[in-house]
């Protein structure tokens, strides 16, 4: 009886097992029509980390795809966010290319980039060329003043950095916080660089400027344009591209290049350390500074080319933006800003 009981038990178990397998085997298999056969080969992939806006990276990357047949996987985000990610990944399972971000920011992360000698270096602007070969510049963005045509009489337009500090525009200036907006940070550093030549110290410049903002700080550069276009503020500090775009959209704005000089800090492109698709990354680097891409930038995207052979109107009063000096005073300036604004 005992033996038979065990036999029956195992038979029962076998039946159950069989039944369960029957159910399991009938669960639908992943369909072959799922499109897996269209997946790209590994050598046909490029992973691009970008801090550019969609309207910049999308056409460039799409054109790159169409021309090379390479599938580009895009990871976008803010400059610091992306650079932080690259540092965290530290060459492990990371992307291929860092596309965008001010070159001053990129320089701070030189350790995480591969050295690359650009094949078109002789036609690129030498002042925005990294001698270490860690990054190449892509486009430059001059800092400009904007004003609302309806509110500001053209004769009384502010034309210099100095004018912003003389108290006449107190509470009427729109400027983004430099710790969140890259262009605002560059603008402040440019102002400091320019006004130091006039005999003012960094602290004096910032203290005076913050005083003239009268507590009105825009959260980002987009808000600056909106505030000026809507008349909330009369003048604003922003970059040329954003200003032009807003004007093309029909905003009643005008643009002024400060007379003491303005900087045109370029953004750059770099190959990430230990990138999985090095060959494609190099192709992409060359593509970003190719004549056609640079022409497209100038003609369609309101950007400044970093090539010397592209015809574009010169930036009025452009000064040489001292990268090293900026890198040094940057954190000091931000600390001061935070202390003054209480953020």
């Amino acid at each position: 009886m005992e033996k038979r009981g065990r036999y029956t038990g195992s038979l029962l178990l076998l039946f159950l097992l069989f039944a369960m397998t029957a159910v399991a085997s009938h669960s639908p298999q992943p369909g072959e029509a799922g499109g897996q056969q269209y997946a790209p080969d590994e050598e046909q992939i490029l992973i691009v980390y970008t801090a550019h806006k969609k309207e910049i990276y999308e056409p460039v990357i799409k054109e790159f795809e169409e021309r090379t047949g390479i599938w580009v996987q895009v990871v976008d985000g803010g400059t610091n966010e992306i650079l932080g990610r690259i540092a965290k990944e530290d060459g492990m399972d990371s992307g291929d290319v860092m596309f965008g971000g001010g070159v001053d920011n990129l320089s701070a992360y030189n350790d995480y980039f591969e050295t690359y000698e650009c094949r078109q270096s002789e036609v690129l602007r030498s002042d925005y060329y990294d001698p270490d070969g860690k990054w190449i510049s892509f486009s430059s963005l001059p800092i400009v003043f904007i004003y609302n045509n309806k509110l500001v009489y053209s004769a009384g337009v502010p034309t210099s950095w100095e004018e912003l500090l003389d108290g006449n525009w107190k509470g009427k200036i729109s400027c983004a916080a430099p710790d969140t907006s890259g262009s605002s940070c560059t603008a402040l550093l440019t102002m400091i660089q320019v006004l130091e030549g006039e005999g003012l110290t960094q602290d004096e410049v910032i203290t005076s400027f913050v005083d003239n903002l009268d507590g009105n700080i825009a959260p980002d550069s987009v808000r600056v344009l909106e505030e000026v276009a809507s008349g909330t503020r009369m003048i604003g500090i922003t970059n040329e591209e954003s200003a032009r775009k807003q004007m093309q959209k029909g905003a009643d704005l005008s643009m002024v290049y400060p007379v003491e000089g303005t900087s045109a800090l370029p953004d750059g492109t770099a190959i990430i350390k230990n990138c999985p698709h090095r060959e494609n990354a190099e192709l992409f680097m060359e593509f970003t500074v190719s004549e056609e891409t640079q022409r497209f930038l100038v003609e369609q995207c309101n950007r400044r080319s970093v090539r010397t052979d592209i015809t574009q109107e010169a930036i009025p009063n452009e000064i040489h933006y001292d990268l090293e000096r900026a890198a040094e005073s940057r954190s000091e300036m931000l600390e001061k800003w935070a202390a003054l604004t209480g953020t």
């Binding site: 369909g31 499109g35 269209y38 790209p40």
Partner: peptide, 20 residues
């Protein structure tokens, strides 16, 4: 497709059919 995974995933309760 980019990450080399199978497009269908049990958890999604969605199956993909692709046709050229």
């Amino acid at each position: 497709l980019l990450s080399g995974e199978a497009p269908d995933r049990e958890a999604d309760s969605v199956y993909y059919e692709v046709r050229a």
